[in-house]
């Protein structure tokens, strides 16, 4: 079964309040030395047959990521 992983992250210039909140919590837990935290999304998609790479690109571009504010990276993991 073919598997594709799509990682979606806010673009570096976009403020990430969730990442900041996590960063704040780490500090309260006593973890020092953390410079920053950015939070993103990971999609694991399994295909019944072979993967149509162009279709995955389109899926990431139109639905999984909003490219106005987010970047995505597609990784093909062959079983």
């Amino acid at each position: 079964m073919a598997r594709v992983v799509v990682d979606v992250m806010l673009k570096p210039e976009i403020l990430d309040p969730q990442g900041q909140a996590v960063h704040g919590a780490l500090t309260r837990l006593g973890l020092t030395g953390v410079a920053s935290v950015r939070q993103g999304k990971r999609f694991e998609i399994e295909f019944e047959g072979p993967v149509d790479a162009a279709q995955v690109d389109q899926l990431a571009e139109t639905l999984l990521a909003n490219t106005v504010i987010e970047d995505y990276r597609i990784t093909h993991e062959d079983a």
Partner: peptide
């Protein structure tokens, strides 16, 4: 409307969290 690209830009989580 932003997600539909009828309007530019996007709306993200409030900076005040």
């Amino acid at each position: 409307l932003c997600e539909s690209h009828l309007l530019p830009g996007a709306l993200i989580r409030n900076d005040v969290r």
